[in-house]
Computed example of a mutant assay.
Amino acid sequence: MKLGLRLPQRLGVDLQHDVVEAARTAEAAGYASLWTYEQLLFPETPLEPYAPPNVPWPESGRQTADPLAVLTAAAVVTEKVRLGTAVLIAALHTPVPLAKALATVDQISGGRVIAGLGAGWSSDVLRATGATRGDRGRFLDEMLDVFDAVWGPDPVSIRSPRVIIDKASVLPKPASKIPVMLAGGASNLGRSSSSTALQRIAQRADGWLPLLTTPGPAGAAALRADWDRIRDMATGYGRDASRMELVVVGNVTFTDRPAGPDRSAFVGTLDQIVEDIHTAEEAGADELIVDLNLQDWFTSTGKMLEKAVEIRERAAA
């Protein structure tokens, strides 16, 4: 199983220097991929908790730098690592400009982009761009339709609720096929499992981006069961399920002492975090994204990168 690292976008990051330093350090340390995430704003009194039942929004989320700008900076200073979004919220973007932006970054990077998308969950974030929770699924489906059209051959023609293109060139095209991965749908997210989300992944995505929240054999079994279900459905749609990727997200929170048996995955000491990395591997993950953006005690990106390198070395050992 490969390891990826989420780039620093959080409050306190020196965007002029830290993004480039993190990208270079991660590639040199052997990380296979670099990832960004999207958070548009930080509500003072959120309509929904960060995670059920009442997990508060992290203070570090008060700044989340633009994911594609950060990914572009990483593309310029790296050569081999894949560059992914985990995830962009489809309802926050108009489809054609986003397709064009992703294709541009793919050209800059020489064909290393992965487009990770999600439907979103926060009403505060969605309504800031004129969307509602009811729009989430149809906006995501429309985004996938537009990607298929504008990344294909010119002239492009497509009609959807928000997009009308009648025989036009839409350039640049991606340097190579951009894998489109989707988040959501898992039963271990703290939110209920969504058959519609799993079906969308099986029918349309090149891979799945779930969170791992339950540690140990139970977490591995639950994640593997959902992944097997997705691949079985994909086969039923006539797709080659063996070409789909499972890339698990690990949101790390370190503790001074070992966390108890009721802990969430990726919460605990370094030894426990390494155990959770192996749990993701046992679940059948092709890759795991290590996210250290939640660590408020990091005094600098340099400290974060020291821990990232240590995690990479421990996991490899």
Rank of each mutant, 00 (worst) to 15 (best):
M1Q: 07
G4W: 11
L7N: 09
L11P: 00
A23E: 09
A26Y: 10
G30C: 05
L34R: 01
T36Q: 05
Q39R: 15
L41I: 03
P43Q: 03
V55A: 11
W57D: 08
S60R: 09
Q63N: 13
L68I: 04
V70A: 01
A73M: 12
T78L: 04
V81Q: 03
V96S: 14
L98P: 04
A99K: 03
K100Y: 07
L102V: 04
R112Q: 06
G116P: 06
L117F: 04
D124M: 04
A128N: 10
A131Q: 07
R133E: 14
R133H: 13
F147Y: 07
W151K: 01
G152M: 01
P155V: 03
S157A: 10
D166E: 15
V170F: 07
A175K: 11
A183P: 05
L189Q: 15
S193D: 12
S193Y: 12
R204I: 02
A205N: 08
D206R: 05
W208R: 03
L211M: 13
G219T: 04
A222E: 15
R229G: 14
D232A: 08
R239I: 02
D240K: 13
G250L: 10
G250C: 06
T253N: 09
D256W: 00
T269E: 11
I289L: 12
F298M: 06
G302T: 14
K303I: 02
M304E: 13
E313P: 00
